[in-house]
Nucleic acid binder design. Structure first.
Lengths: 157, 157
DNA sequence: AGAACAAAGTTGATGCTTCAACTATATGTC
DNA sequence: GACATATAGTTGAAGCATCAACTTTGTTCT
């Protein structure tokens, strides 16, 4: 059983700090400006980028990196706010589609600029292009080691 | 107002995925093996490394990267479990010290190996030394841009 | 076709986090 | 010295995440 070396600690600690602080900061911005969480935003924007603004719950969970249970609760809340609607999916009788409503699309469009700006301010602008690319490559590698493939839709953020 | 470029998205998405998945995975390990959260662990181990196993609430909050409110709740729970005790601090009449009890120290010692192993497995082992160092440097830089200095005590993890 | 098992989703309970409001002590200012 | 303001910390309420249990539908094997 080995502890972390001093060099490893010197990398690990700041990373843990980032893991705690960045989501808090991003959530605070979204909560304040739009009354939603980052996870809500991920779900809404994930749907907004999907063909027909529609995704099966399990696929949406994959793009949002969440459990199905978490997603189900969140979709219920988003549904109650009129931004998402559930539909029985075709084919597989178990499949449920989450569909982004027009109001939901509006919400994403209103929310995106502020959120993108926060991401820029808090993260992107503080790093060189090369560093940011390194960060992405490292994240990808770590996830790949756990068999996770990141889904990259083509949207604002 | 600018969106993220395609290269930036290609870095941002995996990073978001990591931000969501890694804490979940670490929390799951600690919850399963020790019945505590990662944040609990951070508080306990932070105290275990402090002189006299004692830190003022506000200092502890800084080392654990948390709000005072969150810390206060957590310390109350840890106190109820017999791992931490509150003491009136000397000097400043407002200062409260959190002190790690013997039982608390035992808990950290029992918990640390499994947690360190999880960190190794999930993160450290998947990266080269250089990559891991890069990750640390990047995290440090991002935090520094927000005026946050990371406190690095000398403990297992 | 029937039994066993797996996959998709939901639900309710429990515990954690956040926010705003509050108390108490310290510090600065006139 | 009194007043205003800032800092340290706590608390309760509301919202969110997680886990286990459950239902329903699909798949596999014989």
């Amino acid at each position: 059983m080995e502890w972390l070396s001093e060099q490893q600690q010197a990398a690990w600690r700041p990373f843990v700090a980032l893991l705690l602080r960045l989501p808090t900061a991003l959530d605070a911005q979204l909560q304040k400006d739009a009354g939603i969480t980052q996870f809500d935003y991920l779900v809404l924007s994930g749907l907004s980028e999907a063909p027909g603004r529609t995704l099966r719950m399990s696929e949406l969970a994959a793009t949002a990196n969440s459990s199905l249970s978490r997603l189900s609760h969140v979709v219920s809340r988003l549904e109650a706010r009129g931004w998402v609607r559930r539909e029985q999916g075709p084919g597989d009788g178990r499949g449920i589609n989450a569909v982004l409503t027009d109001a939901g699309l509006d919400k994403v469009r209103q929310t995106a600029p502020g959120h993108v700006e926060a991401v820029r301010e808090l993260l992107v602008s503080t790093l060189s292009d090369e560093e940011f690319a390194q960060l992405g490559a490292i994240a990808k590698k770590v996830l790949a080691a756990q068999g996770i493939k990141v889904i990259i839709p083509n949207g604002p953020c």
